[in-house]
Design a protein around this nucleic acid. Sequence first.
DNA 1: GTCTATATGGTGATAGAC
DNA 2: GTCTATCACCATATAGAC
Lengths: 211, 211
Amino acid sequence: MPDSPGDTILIPTKERLFLSAAELFSKNGYNGVSVRDICRSVGIKESSFYNHYPSKDALLEEVYRRFTDGMNSNTPSEELVDQLVRTTDPIEFWLSSYRRYYKNSVSTLEGLLWRIISMEQYRDPRAGEAILKETERTLSLGTLIFSKMIEHKKIPPHDPETLAHEFFYAGRAIHLEYLVLSAYGWDTAEVEMRSEEHIRFFVGKIVLMEA
Amino acid sequence: MPDSPGDTILIPTKERLFLSAAELFSKNGYNGVSVRDICRSVGIKESSFYNHYPSKDALLEEVYRRFTDGMNSNTPSEELVDQLVRTTDPIEFWLSSYRRYYKNSVSTLEGLLWRIISMEQYRDPRAGEAILKETERTLSLGTLIFSKMIEHKKIPPHDPETLAHEFFYAGRAIHLEYLVLSAYGWDTAEVEMRSEEHIRFFVGKIVLMEA
DNA sequence: GTCTATATGGTGATAGAC
DNA sequence: GTCTATCACCATATAGAC
């Protein structure tokens, strides 16, 4: 009964190698992890590794690929954005988005991938490109959201792209600080507060602002 | 005449080792550079390295130390801030500060150190701490500057700490993007424009608004 | 402070038996 | 797909002559 529900799901060795590699890379950086380390944590010999991946670099390639794929598939449709914006208060909208984002960034595979890529972005152009692409994706999505907020008269009219830049670049920097703090189990309460203050200040000011 | 001006200045081997190490670390990361690499670029044998530093890690320690020392000594006095704020238009003040900052970040030793620490911040708590300390220093300085601007009626009254957070976190994220682009010689014109737009929008639209 | 020589162990990767 | 065995090289670091 290979497809019966309830069967033990065996994670294939290749996937376990990738997940262990991502975990280790995110803690020690790509160059701080050996193929030995990865195989030891999975429980196979190093020679077996090469039955699944042609090289250590192929793991990093897959980090970049999965990160980019994940980001693209996480982008909500214009219809969904429209509906969310129509039915939610702008401050509540951003507060709940950011809370979800913060939680995901330390509990999901994508959070791991983000941290790996952050570390490698200065020395590996593939990582640099992935980060830049993701930034543009975020800013585009933000531009769309602010457009919709203006369209539905949730906020007064302003250039939505400028609003997105202001809002997301600050949000990015605060989130990066959060990631460093969480990496060492340090207290994140203050930086989480700063993130919420950022939302309240920015959206609050915009709403008050005359065009 | 050992102290005569015009004498050829010999840079001591220890300093040449440190400068080469910083250069290489900033390109390939600490774990991507060997003591061999550093010694080759300086022109000595690896064994001689240990006459100057007890270990490879000691180089990284010095990166952190010089970074922290440099940041502390770069902090302007309250008097200087007061004078600059009194004699300069707020937008011009920030535009010229940022232009200098961007230029320094790709042409000075401190720029190198910043990039090294950025890379190591997720895996080495000493780097994480250095980054966090530097962020707090920047935000404190920003708070002081906005206080002075309010005091001298250059901008309307607002909570200066909130202004500093909003302004500097966004500035930080834009600058990080600039660093990635410059790392690979990619075009930085657009991100430089974004930095200036950030200043103009923030100071022009948000700060100059009535409280 | 430099060098040659060496210690000791880690590195990514391959050959070939089962 | 797994294993044992092995390769050629690289890593940090030390000993001791000059």
